[in-house]
């Protein structure tokens, strides 16, 4: 479920591009009014080419790819570097090769390699954030699209459930899960996923509610298509880019939320380590060993910015009405995102 985020050129987009071809040459047309038009052109490649045209977006994609690679292969490479303690070599400053490459980013308060810990933390962070975002995205979007398509009671009930989740203290949920179960990664993922479902639910519902009144949906309905088929074939492809953009932004939010939980003592617990936990535990050493909290903080910031840039690019690239901007030298915009979110609280 998380693959779309890692592979923006994935197959979902070929469908979106289909819907967009008609609008590509008429930038001011409202994209949602355009019914999906069949066009099996080689959009996959062109999306990639478009990416290369924007050097910021390319850089962002590279950063994210690097983070992904570190998360997958890093822990194997660093071995026990992240756990080997040496109390006599604690808090060694970074950027010195006296103790070898393993300690180039210094050592932490127990003399463990900061580099090794950052690498292991990358995996934890990603394996919390990605599934959390993925689960919330899938559940929230499908539910929202369904509610928005059918409207009426189903819509009202869904919206009120969203209200309930949003006004429910997620901290309590965290404590309950930690108490009743164990403070494992899976449970943190569960908490973060549940509390973020309403965001997708509301957005998807708003979009889908607007779509279901459109003529092309009406047409499909009169031809006797089943609701699930219409949703799957006509609604979801149009709503997806917005939701994916949202998911990228949520990825950042989830990383920050996880670090706040760590700060409050109810997030990831030692001996597990995540960027957020490292920032949280390093904060008391701010005046004596700044690298303990600055380096993982930097990892969060850089990853988040990269994800943001890519999201900004992606929402234009996948938006037929905006896509032409990318073919012009250095143009970016974000109207689709705005219209997408406008109905979110309705």
């Amino acid at each position: 479920m998380a693959t779309p985020l890692l592979q923006p050129e994935g197959h979902q987009h070929s469908e979106i591009d289909r819907s967009g071809t008609a609008a590509t040459h008429t930038p001011d047309a409202r994209p949602l009014e355009a019914p999906p038009v069949q066009d099996l052109g080689d959009k996959k490649l062109s999306l990639f080419r478009l990416l290369l045209r924007d050097k910021f977006a390319t850089l962002a994609a590279l950063v994210l790819m690097f983070v992904g690679l570190v998360a997958v292969f890093g822990p194997m490479l660093v071995g026990d570097l992240a756990t080997r303690q040496d109390l006599l070599a604690a808090n060694k400053p970074p950027f010195s090769l006296d103790d070898g490459w393993g300690y180039v980013l210094g050592s932490d308060s127990l003399g463990r390699s900061m580099l090794g810990r950052l690498v292991v933390a990358t995996r934890t962070t990603i394996s919390v954030a990605l599934p959390a975002v993925g689960i919330a995205l899938v559940i929230g979007s499908l539910w929202g699209v369904w509610a928005g398509y059918h409207r009426g009671l189903r819509e009202t009930i869904s919206m009120r459930i969203a209200d309930v989740i949003m006004s429910f203290p997620s901290l309590l949920l965290a404590v309950v899960v930690l108490y009743v179960f164990n403070p494992s990664l899976g449970n943190i993922v569960l908490i973060l996923a549940i509390t973020r479902i309403p965001i997708y639910l509301r957005t998807a519902r708003a979009e889908s509610a607007e779509l279901q009144s459109r003529t092309f949906v009406d047409a499909a309905r009169t031809f006797g298509s089943k609701p699930t088929a219409i949703i799957g074939r006509h609604v979801i492809p149009i709503v997806l880019p917005t939701l994916l953009t949202l998911a990228t932004l949520e990825f950042c939010y989830v990383m920050l939320a996880e670090s706040s939980l760590s700060f409050l003592g109810i997030g990831i617990q030692s001996p597990d380590v995540s960027w957020g936990l490292m920032v949280s535990q390093g904060r008391q050493y701010l005046q004596t060993a700044w690298w303990l909290s600055i380096l993982p903080g930097l990892a969060i910031v850089v990853t988040t910015i990269a994800a943001n840039i890519l999201a900004a690019w992606l929402r234009i690239a996948t938006d037929p009405a905006q896509r032409w901007r990318l073919s012009l030298p250095r143009k970016r915009g974000g109207r689709r995102f705005g219209t997408a979110l406008k109905g979110a609280t309705k």
Binding site: L256, S259, R283, V301, I305
Partner: peptide, 24 residues
């Protein structure tokens, strides 16, 4: 001025602002 200096700076700053852990 989309993609002007002001735009680039403000986008970068605003993204960074939204991605720093608040307690830190």
């Amino acid at each position: 001025k989309p993609n002007g200096v002001a735009d680039r700076i403000s986008s970068f700053v605003s993204m960074a602002a939204a991605s720093i852990p608040d307690f830190w």
